[in-house]
Nucleic acid binder design. Structure first.
Ligand SMILES: [Mn+2]
Ligand SMILES: [Mn+2]
Ligand SMILES: [Mn+2]
Ligand SMILES: [Mn+2]
Lengths: 218, 218
DNA sequence: ATATAAAGTTTGATTATTCAAAATACCTGT
DNA sequence: ACAGGTATTTTGAATAATCAAACTTTATAT
């Protein structure tokens, strides 16, 4: 059985791999994303390679094997289902559930997971709008527009928040830009680096391009 | 912070201490109750003593300190609240929740625990009838009669099952002797080592004295 | 009072995970 | 082509938890 440390490494490598060019994740990225020193990342990745969960090329990086990807997706399902459960059933704030799910994802049994899934009605997205893989391991991967490149003057729905630092989520909360909210992008001024929005609740606000690109819509 | 191993040792020592004569728990009991070899128990207990959670007397046994008892009761609260939550909210079978709670008790935050407590309406007993310590650490300890020593021909309610092996719980389930059920003890024949019961649902059945003593009533 | 048996402790090793610091390889700009 | 800088790997050590097997104490039973 994979330890919770192994589960975290694999999940994190998967996430990093998604937005990597060549499919390889560097040791530096692994280290940062898991909060360890580079030497630890190297050691651990070599051991993951021994377990056939990744392919490791010294001085190049890691890439998940089939088995690794399967485990990663399973962990993603656990993590996201738990996050939704914490919000829906226990009424926690969606900006503070990540750490909790980070621990629980290793502790609950498949039995409990399925029970949660049923109770929640087989949801497709978590509170941040991230897709929840199906039990069979299917992960929808439609690419969405963001506030920096979507159509102007068209009602859109916020689908997903890609920066999940509690700082950004707090801002999103405060500004009423949570997933599900309807809005219209009024204008974009590249010189001013600004995007002007109009929310369905009547509020208008301006965000910078960098922030806007972290908010996906559909 | 205490590791989950430490939490388990302390909780288990507390449980063993309750039904010990002199208040000391032997290394043998610690070892069996945690499923480790005796040498491991000795080593671990010495380290618990270094952390001031227990007092250890070589060749005599362990006893919890104030701090140890506090931690033990906190873990008991977690364990039992989680068990009830799994049954009430997630609809799991009460005979299969122990192992689950054994892992979750180390993973959930205080925040989530309080949320569960609120959702369940500050319950006083878990699905096995074991008392749930209050947030302040109070554990009710009324002693109950069992089917082997209670009054005859008097309607009573099953309050608690003391043997929580899945084998026994399965039998309890099958026979309809879960906590909350009403019954009357018709007769006890010491020679036959048998106790005859009449359940409120009309069923009658006979159990051995040993089994009967594991079922507490009030 | 001794020999056994039972219980408990020690010792030496192993696995998993991590860090600090030294060593090495690779890349870049001149 | 090479000096310096950056990334990566290696080495050596630490912590937590465990086991097997040897050893020591204490209890028991003749
Ligand atoms: Mn995690
Ligand atoms: Mn999420
Ligand atoms: Mn436990
Ligand atoms: Mn219980």
């Amino acid at each position: 059985m994979a330890t919770s440390t192994v589960e975290d490494y694999i999940k994190q490598i998967y996430l990093e791999q998604i937005d990597s060019i060549d499919g390889f994740v560097t040791m530096g990225r692994v280290a940062i994303s898991l909060g360890v020193v580079p030497g630890t990342a190297t050691t651990m990745v070599k051991s993951l390679a021994d377990s056939e969960l990744v392919n490791y090329e010294p001085r190049v990086g890691v890439r998940l094997t089939e088995a690794g990807e399967e485990l990663a997706i399973q962990m993603l399902r656990r993590h996201r289902l738990i996050e939704l459960f914490l919000v829906e059933t226990l009424g926690l704030d969606w900006s503070e559930i990540h750490e909790e799910a980070e621990k629980l994802e290793h502790a609950i049994s498949d039995r409990v997971l399925e029970q949660m899934d049923t109770l929640l009605g087989h949801p497709k997205v978590d509170p941040h709008g991230d897709p929840i893989p199906s039990e069979s391991g299917n992960l929808s991967n439609e690419l969405l527009m963001n506030l920096g490149n979507c159509i102007l003057n068209q009602p859109l729905n916020i689908a997903r928040i890609t920066d999940q630092s509690s700082e950004f989520l707090q801002f999103v909360n405060k500004s009423g830009l949570m997933p599900g909210v309807e809005l219209t992008v009024l204008k974009r001024e590249s010189a001013a680096d600004a995007i002007t929005l109009h929310l369905s609740n009547g509020m208008s606000l301006v965000v910078g391009t960098l922030a806007g690109e972290k908010i996906l819509v559909e």
